[in-house]
Amino acid sequence: MKKPLIALDGLDLLASAVLVLRPDSDIAYANPAAEILLASSSKALTNHKLNELFINCQELEQVFQEALEHQFADKRLDLVLERLGRDPLQVHVVVSALDSAETPVLIELRENVQQLKLDREERLIDQSQANKELIRNLAHEIKNPLGGIRGAAQLLEMELPERHLKEFREYTQVIIKEADRLQTLVDRLLAPHRSPHIVGDVNIHEVCERVRSLIVAEFPNGLKIKRDYDLSVPEFRGDKEQLIQAVLNIAHNAAQVLSARMKAGDAELTLRTRIARQVTLAKVRYRLALDLHIIDNGPGIPPDIRDRIFYPLVSGRDGGSGLGLTLAQTFVQQHMGLIECESRPGCTDFRILIPLP
Rank of each mutant, 00 (worst) to 15 (best):
L5I: 06
I6G: 00
A7I: 03
L8E: 07
L11W: 09
L11P: 00
L11Q: 03
L13T: 03
L14G: 00
L14C: 06
L19T: 05
D24P: 07
D24V: 06
D24A: 12
D26Q: 13
A33C: 02
L38D: 06
A39G: 12
S42W: 00
K43Q: 12
L45E: 10
L45G: 05
L50Q: 02
N51Y: 10
E61M: 15
E61D: 09
F64L: 08
Q65F: 08
Q65D: 10
H70E: 14
K75G: 03
L77R: 08
L77D: 03
L81K: 04
D87P: 01
Q90W: 07
V93T: 05
V95K: 01
V95W: 10
A97C: 10
A101L: 11
E102R: 12
P104F: 09
L109Y: 01
E111N: 00
N112S: 11
Q114H: 13
L118A: 11
D119W: 02
S128G: 09
A130G: 04
K132Q: 15
K132G: 14
I135H: 00
N137D: 12
A139W: 09
H140Q: 14
G148Q: 13
G148E: 14
R150H: 11
A152P: 01
Q154H: 08
L155N: 07
L155W: 11
H164C: 00
L165P: 02
L165F: 14
Y171P: 00
T172Y: 13
Q173W: 07
I176G: 00
I176K: 11
L190T: 08
L190S: 02
P192C: 03
H193V: 02
H193L: 12
S195K: 14
H197W: 09
H205I: 13
E206S: 13
E209N: 15
V211D: 04
R212C: 03
S213D: 11
S213N: 11
L214D: 10
F219T: 02
K226M: 07
D228E: 15
Y229F: 15
Y229R: 05
S232I: 05
E235A: 08
R237C: 00
G238N: 02
D239N: 12
E241W: 05
Q242S: 10
Q242E: 12
Q242T: 01
I250R: 06
N253V: 01
A260D: 13
R261Q: 13
R261Y: 11
D266I: 09
L269N: 02
T270I: 15
T270E: 14
L271C: 05
L271E: 06
I275V: 14
A276P: 09
A276H: 05
V279I: 15
R285H: 14
R287N: 11
H293T: 01
H293Y: 12
I294P: 06
I294S: 10
I295Q: 10
I295L: 13
N297K: 09
N297V: 00
G298S: 03
G300P: 06
G300S: 05
P302L: 06
D304G: 00
I305Y: 04
F310K: 00
Y311A: 09
G319T: 08
G319Q: 09
G322C: 07
V332A: 07
Q334F: 02
L338G: 04
S343A: 06
T348Q: 06
D349G: 04
D349Y: 05
R351E: 10
L356P: 06
